[in-house]
Design a binder for these strands. Structure first.
Length: 209
DNA sequence: TGTCGGATCAGCT
DNA sequence: GCTGATCCGACAC
């Protein structure tokens, strides 16, 4: 395996949020929460582009206490509670005041599977360990109190790594985003990206294009 | 202060 | 494949 490299602040500053959402496939999400280390390879993402994206929490320049972190510079985590139960992990991208984000929807477990299994209350070989945005957040110990942490900071308990995995374009499928049917025209945008034939990809595993 | 609905998941069929 | 659980954030009043 190539040398592990925490992705630098600069990586997150691009305004091409769909390009970054594709580029995140094959990168690693790593956490060290409660002194427990675990990681997984990103296999599914969705791009959200405020303010013109009705599905984005920053649509139409909306700012609230919860979404304020979306307007920070790229490279911080935006974690929010969905359905009152699930914590969903997003990577904020683009320069300050441009509210773009990428939802991490699924991982292929790599390190600390026993830790993840313990947090999830299931066995370490269960395919559902990190399959889906709520599931992976629970597995890695990601909660809303980590919203706003700087992923590029050497001291942060959450970060992204490039471990040298190369993803071929032909192995990236795309589809409409999940669960945003309310979002009008934006609901049709093919801004969900996932690895072809990867068993950790969540619902609807066929290409929508 | 009250209402509404959601970027989901697990368990069961 | 279908359905109930569950509760906070946003906004209307």
């Amino acid at each position: 395996m190539a040398g592990r490299r925490r992705l630098p602040r600069q990586y997150y500053q691009s305004e091409d949020v769909t390009g970054l959402a594709r580029d995140l496939l094959g990168k690693y999400l790593v956490t060290e929460v409660d002194n427990r280390y675990c990681s997984g390879m990103i296999v599914e993402t969705e791009a959200y582009r405020g303010p013109d994206d009705r599905a984005c929490h920053a649509f139409n320049h909306r700012r609230t206490q919860r979404t304020e972190v979306l307007y920070a510079q790229g490279g911080v985590a935006y974690i929010y509670l969905c359905y009152g139960i699930h914590h969903l992990m997003n990577v904020v991208t683009a320069p300050r005041d441009t509210a773009h984000a990428i939802l991490i929807r699924a991982l292929q477990p790599e390190n600390g599977m026993e830790v993840m299994a313990d947090r999830r209350g299931m066995s370490a070989n269960d395919v559902r360990l990190t399959k889906g945005p709520g599931a992976l957040s629970q597995a890695l110990g990601l909660t809303t109190n980590l919203s706003g942490v700087e992923l590029f900071s050497s001291a942060s308990p959450v970060w992204l790594e490039d471990r040298g995995v190369i993803i071929a374009e032909k192995d990236i499928y795309s589809s409409k985003r999940i669960g945003v049917a309310y979002a009008g025209e934006a609901a049709q945008w093919p801004w969900r990206y996932f690895l072809k034939d990867n068993k950790y990809v969540s619902v609807h595993r066929k290409s929508g294009l």
